[in-house]
Simulated assay, not measured.
Amino acid sequence: MPCDIVLSVPRSPHYDVVVIGAGMIGAACAHALTERGMTVAVVDRGPVAGGTTGAGEGNLLVSDKVPGSELELALESQRLWRELAESLGADALEYEAKGGLVVAKDLQSLGALQGLAARQREAGVEAVPVPADALGELEPHLAPALAGGVLYPQDAQVQPALAAATLLRAARDTGRAELLAGTAVTALAEGRVETDTRGTLHCGAVVNAAGTWGGEIAALAGAALPILPRRGFVLVTEPLPPLVRHKVYAADYVADVASGSADLQSSGVVEGTAAGPVLIGASRERVGFDRSLAVPVLARLAAQAAELFPVLRDVRVMRAYRGFRPYLPDHLPAIGPDPRRPWLLQACGHEGAGIGLAPATGRLIAQLLGDEKPFMDPTPFDPARFQEEQP
């Protein structure tokens, strides 16, 4: 008696886009892509937010951005973060619209701060001058001998690991995204991503959202992206009653962010959290992927925080953690298609601003892949600016 025999041949999964990296940038890209109906696989060799995102403070800042393309990206991200807080729930992100307060220790730094604020206002930033005698109304525990400051009401904060997980969950809830954690990418070519545990993933495009490790992923495709790790430490105090109302930092922090020096730089950055502990930063140094606990750096951060808030001098530090910011030489992220491999889109190199810039980065990537008109000129972020370093 004849019968039909149907052989079941395993097929490799096919996606519109494979996003490499399950940190904040990768999560934002996946969210934006699935919103436009694309199918997405998010691949990461570790867990969600297991890299730079999990070691961040969750800052959503415009206060530290000079007028230009990065500030334009930040302003759009601020708008999108507010939308996400409304649609997904502020608690699901631990979104706090706390505002930022930048303070100056002397008249010279105050003049520079006020000059920057004036330029930022012309670019659409809310920047409110605060005279020295009014600082205490905003922050009662602030040191009394400061020259003045500027209040930035648009600055906000999220809990970065929670926010990344929430965006990934929202993408998966559409039925168009899959998370492949614990899966390392071993090779890249047009139309496919080779992995160590899931075999070949066929796709139309690849987004490199691997952060500090983005250069390694680019190299798998034969591309070059000169990302270097820039180490930073954060101190976490014991739980405290509300002491710090805003994100507060010294004006010299902006110069540290813009510096290209490999040497250690630090400036006082202090902010409270909803859970009670105070977070203290910020340091920057290029020491490769050295994860050593640098006690002198921690002591320096603690001293700078106590200068801003003397009340912290007798507070216990419960722990310290470190992370590696993805540093590119011109301090701008790489966002867009590789000039020689247009199927590979870079979305990394945001240094310490990745959490804040993530939603707008995801939107830009989705618009470029969807042949939409970008909301801003992406040219300053074009990976082609590094093409001389490509083979």
Rank of each mutant, 00 (worst) to 15 (best):
K105A: 09
V40A: 09
T52A: 15
D371N: 07
P129L: 05
V270R: 06
D252H: 15
T379K: 11
Q346A: 11
P380N: 02
P342Y: 03
R291G: 10
A127Y: 02
G199Y: 04
F381Y: 03
K105P: 00
V102R: 14
S283G: 04
V103N: 11
E388H: 10
P277W: 11
V257D: 15
A127W: 06
P337K: 08
L279W: 13
C29M: 01
M1D: 08
T34E: 04
R119H: 04
E76Y: 02
R363I: 02
S8V: 12
S12A: 15
P374N: 06
D252Q: 11
A347V: 10
V254R: 07
Q390V: 04
A90Q: 05
L135M: 13
V207N: 03
R121W: 00
A306Y: 01
P329K: 01
P339I: 06
A104R: 07
L60K: 01
H246S: 11
G281V: 09
D155A: 10
E216I: 03
S109E: 15
R245F: 01
V311F: 00
P359H: 07
V42C: 10
L293W: 00
E57L: 04
A224H: 09
V236G: 02
G68Q: 10
V278G: 07
M1Q: 11
A30P: 11
H350P: 05
V317L: 15
E388V: 10
V40F: 10
R45Y: 09
M318L: 13
E139K: 00
T273G: 07
A156N: 02
L168S: 05
V297A: 02
